[in-house]
Design a binder for these strands. Structure first.
Lengths: 337, 337
DNA sequence: ACTGGCACTCCTTCTACCCGAGTGCCAAGT
DNA sequence: ACTTGGCACTCGGGTAGAAGGAGTGCCAGT
């Protein structure tokens, strides 16, 4: 029911609208793209496209604007992901290679992605649940306080202060630390609760209350807090876009971790790009924004996701190219460290 | 040259303009404040105030608006810091008490301050240079990689991955770790370079290259990276303000660490409030914003600063009250942990 | 199936205009 | 010497109408 030319028209409309930010009319269309037919013909096609819900006109006597459904079709069938220029590739490399710890990697990534796409970038920290324990450290920092540091194979370092409610001997701490490392070394975090279940039996009775406290904090850190950390950058890029709704809503949404989490979606297959357009979005205030996201990680397994948020009227091919490239590169960086 | 009534007029103008966001005229002024004189008299006073540069009119036949100089006088001599309501005090307590590590304290603080003032909040992490070492941890995370973790008495945890370029034996690592802790425990970070200067001599010749690498990374972490970390929240609160300049400039400035640092100013005496108004600001894009900042820390010594950024047209007494209260409370929290 | 022509719609821009808030100044009053 | 009421003046903002123009839908012809 949509022949090739109608699809070409839709594609042209999306492209023109994205680049000019103005409703596109039939005349402008034939001038800018060599469609080989007259404006009148295009008008007929447009009428059909509109009837089917792919485009709409802001008011009579204005050009057409793609609807969310139109963008969806464009993304699914009419566009190909645009590879980055070599200059951009080089920028990614030089920018990310200087990073020296996970915080730095994530921080650089989010700024890079924002700059590359001129939109808002969102990066989730590698999820704890898919990581495994590389090392557990237990350090007394005061009379009745221990600091628990957990280092994962993804470079993530979690720290928690533990109140012991009673002084703990150095020896006990050292013993407990050794035990923890024995139980947990290399262990997937999801399997951690099982791995430490019989640990209390191995500590002297006197130390059991402390051990229990430490364990409960440890498990809490792993289970409750897991994959909550997420950052964004490039809010300034929103300023020059005029949103139909208030910019405030978008900024508010961005400051809520929970919303950001849902925005990026489930961590699925590492290499898949997800595009969520306008009303497909879970959050109320983001109805006129789109999100392009991808998982990143080591090998096939996605550790977390990153993506870009912008107006529905965005340059999908380029954005998708940037997101994909950055996701891959971050995966490599993480694999190497 | 400015008698009491003229000062009262200026105060009234600032207050009215802040609350209504509209140029205030002589008639409105006598109606809303009991000044006991006629509009004509006020007009004369206004003319003087304008001549002296405290107020200005956007155009002839409009009311008056305070200038930066006017706000300055208001803040310095015409206003008193407004204490928080008890509800607000309670909010601070309940919100900050749940924090369990430094990241969390800082994160909660910045969100709290943003919410309290309905503006953009900025919080600097406790400076490394004024902290002392509580513990140094050195953990092998791969064949040729060590993770260096540095824990300070302010609860800050710094981590760096170190490439050793050669495999290192467990024993050597343990020895080095012990040495580091002996040298550095309780040591002020500023004195760290001296404290470790003779450390290389104490390690076996075979391990000296590794020790040197570790030390150089350690010192680099302490010296170069120090006090760079800073966060902000509440950007959404900027959206409903209409800036004379573009909102984009402000958002851009906020995303640059360096600018944020200079914004808060030097960490001086812990309890002093600094107010920087409009053009007093160091940064180009922030010429129509004001910053209210305070140091926070344990006791008299300021560890770092926090503050609020908003339009010059802000409610200074309340903002100053909130900043002061939060700074004090964060100091208490840090002292206790 | 495509095309040119044409009438129609309706947004946008421009102009002219009025209204009113607010001012500065002045002369008179205290 | 300050304060006050009166008054003319200025200028921005809002409204109404007109002109302009981009774009459409439809129709009849090829």
């Amino acid at each position: 029911m949509l022949d090739d030319r109608k699809l070409a028209v839709l594609r042209a409309i999306v492209e023109d609208y994205v680049s000019t930010n103005e409703p596109v009319g039939s005349k402008a269309l034939v001038e800018r793209h060599s469609l080989g037919v007259s404006p009148a013909t295009i008008r007929n096609d447009m009428a059909v496209l509109e009837e089917q819900g792919y485009i709409t006109q802001p008011h009579t006597s204005a050009g057409r604007v793609p609807t969310d459904k139109g963008y969806r079709l464009f993304v699914d069938r009419l566009s190909t992901i645009k590879p980055l220029s070599s200059a951009e590739r080089r920028a990614i490399e030089t920018f990310l290679n200087g990073a020296y710890d996970l915080d730095d990697v994530v921080g650089r990534t989010v700024r890079l992605l924002a700059q590359l796409t001129r939109q808002v970038a969102v990066v989730q920290y590698p999820s704890l649940s898919r990581s495994s324990v590389r090392h557990v450290e237990l350090v007394p920092v005061a009379d009745q306080r221990l600091l628990l540091v957990l280092i994962t194979n993804t470079g993530r370092v979690e720290q928690r202060v533990i109140e012991t409610h009673a002084p703990v001997a150095e020896d006990s701490v050292a013993h407990l630390r050794a035990l923890l490392n024995t139980c947990l070394d290399g262990c997937r975090l999801t399997e951690a609760p099982g791995a430490v279940s019989d640990l209390p039996e191995q500590v002297p009775p006197d130390d059991r209350p402390v051990a229990a406290t430490v364990l409960s904090v440890l498990l809490e850190t792993l289970v409750e807090k897991h994959e909550e950390k997420i950052v964004f950058a490039g809010a300034a890029n929103l300023a020059h876009v005029d949103f139909s709704q208030s910019l405030r809503d978008v900024l508010e949404a961005l400051e809520e971790q929970v919303v950001l989490m849902r925005l990026l979606g489930e961590a699925g297959d590492s290499s898949t790009l997800t595009v969520r357009i306008g009303t497909e979005n879970p959050h109320e205030g983001l109805r006129s924004t789109s999100v392009v996201a991808a998982g990143y990680g080591v090998g096939d397994q996605a550790l977390a996701r990153l993506g870009v948020l912008g107006p529905t009227r965005m340059d999908y091919p380029s954005t998708m190219g940037a997101v994909r490239a950055v996701a891959r590169y971050v995966g490599q960086i993480l694999a190497g460290s």
